[in-house]
Simulated scan of single mutants.
Amino acid sequence: MEIIGWVLVLLFFAIGFIGLVYPIIPAVLFIFGGFLIYGLFFDFSELPWWFWLIQSLFVILLFGADMLANAFGVKKFGGSKAGLWGSTLGLLIGPFVIPIAGILIGPFLGAILAELAVNRSTPKQAVKSGVGSVVGFITSVFTKGIIQMVMVALFFFVI
């Protein structure tokens, strides 16, 4: 049973890190789920209250960071709310339409199309918004990756 427990914990952590670049997967929830699985298979008492408090704050931070990084990238490059929404839709749809490359192409094209359709932006401005969405996505992945590594490192430190 111990081996099954560790396999599940590590599998949840791995899925959490895959979720950094595949936005359909709620990455941080899988990391948190790994902690819960550990408690169920082994012992929750090994994870003190402050551990759960810190990890819960990280979860909240990650959800906020994800939204803010994308919005910052689009806005910083002159995009509008339409560009932000287009980028988000492209991020969700892109990986299904163009596997792997769609992760970057989807938000880029989504922001461009939304800017052109809704705001009647110039093509140059629409492309700037698309670039901003990609910069925001990459920034978000990097930031979330660091925070998730800290979460997992804290877990292994505590146990």
Rank of each mutant, 00 (worst) to 15 (best):
I112C: 04
F96Y: 14
I103D: 00
P99Y: 07
F96C: 11
L92D: 03
L84A: 11
V97E: 00
G86F: 02
G86I: 08
L91T: 11
I100F: 09
W85M: 15
I105S: 00
G90R: 01
A101P: 11
W85F: 15
F96L: 14
L113E: 11
I100Y: 07
L104N: 03
G106E: 08
V97F: 05
W85N: 14
L91W: 09
S87D: 09
I100E: 07
G110M: 02
G90K: 03
S87L: 08
L113M: 12
L89H: 06
I105L: 08
G94V: 05
P99Q: 06
L91M: 15
G90A: 08
L91G: 12
L113N: 08
L91A: 14
L113K: 04
P95V: 06
P95K: 08
P99R: 03
F108S: 01
P107Y: 00
G110A: 07
A82E: 12
I105R: 01
L92H: 10
S87F: 03
G102T: 05
L84M: 13
F96Q: 13
G110W: 02
F108V: 06
T88G: 13
P95G: 06
L89C: 10
L113Q: 10
L84T: 13
G86C: 10
I98G: 05
G106R: 06
I105E: 01
G102Y: 08
A101C: 13
V97W: 04
I105V: 13
F96E: 11
L104T: 03
A82W: 13
F96W: 15
I93L: 07
I103K: 00
I98F: 09
F96I: 14
T88F: 14
G102P: 06
L113Y: 09
I103S: 00
F96A: 12
I105D: 01
V97L: 03
L84R: 12
I112E: 04
F96M: 13
P99W: 07
K81R: 15
A82T: 11
I98N: 08
T88Y: 13
I93H: 03
L113D: 11
F96N: 12
G110Y: 00
I98R: 07
G110P: 03
I100Q: 05
L84Q: 12
I100K: 07
L113S: 11
V97R: 01
G94T: 04
T88K: 14
